[in-house]
Design a protein around this nucleic acid. Structure first.
Lengths: 114, 114
DNA sequence: CGGTATCCTAGTCGATACTG
DNA sequence: CAGTATCGACTAGGATACCG
């Protein structure tokens, strides 16, 4: 979706910088901490934890810790979290249709407005 | 739309803090600088200018200055800017349906996670 | 493995004052 | 009226290191 999009250019955002991407990562089923960390390249454990905690607090996902050695924790979207896919998809569709035009307008920014 | 929503709770954002609200203000037709400033209570001229310039640069709106005394400037949505109303409405609909649930989850945040 | 704890930077936003 | 200029606060996010 917005993966190829420069961060400041993203015209539509869901929550903070990572929320939407985390939702995408969880779309197909529960994932573990490191399973999230890998596709979200560059996210530090601190920020990932913060994002996950915030989303858990807001009821967007659940955190399940299994009492094993080594520890295993799984994150899974709730119905509420999954419901965000709808507006997210609307945003994606907008991007597909119009983002190129926005970027072009941004490039062509040298007084030749008219 | 998100007007009654605490800033950090807004699950969906368009551009920066003010972009979506500016689009709403321009939805029904062109507006002047101060006509935008009034409904967007609390926005400083500096920030309003910054937001408008960024949106103009991205091709979301046009700025028309009339050479009069006193000066008159009008901002108007482009087709591209207007197209953002679609995903914005999707976000609004999500809020109407689910924001209360999110806020409730946020309130009920005292360890009783199960 | 799944996190915390510190520290730090960069960007966003606001307050205030002034200008063509 | 429609801005600009300056400063300063706040905070999201990242770097790095360590812990149960």
């Amino acid at each position: 979706m917005f993966y190829g999009c420069p961060p400041t250019a993203a015209p539509i955002r869901v929550g903070d910088k990572w929320t939407a991407k985390i939702i995408r990562c969880l779309e197909l089923g529960p994932r573990r901490f490191t399973e999230l960390q890998r596709p979200l390249r560059g996210i530090t454990p601190k920020v990932l934890t913060e994002s996950l905690r915030a989303m858990e607090r807001d009821g967007l996902l659940t955190r399940t810790a299994y009492d094993e050695i080594p520890p295993r924790v799984e994150y899974e979207l709730t119905t509420l979290g999954r419901s965000l896919l709808e507006p997210m998809n609307a945003g994606c569709e907008w991007s597909r249709k119009h983002l190129a035009e926005l970027m072009r307008a941004r490039e062509t920014w040298h007084a030749g407005t008219s």
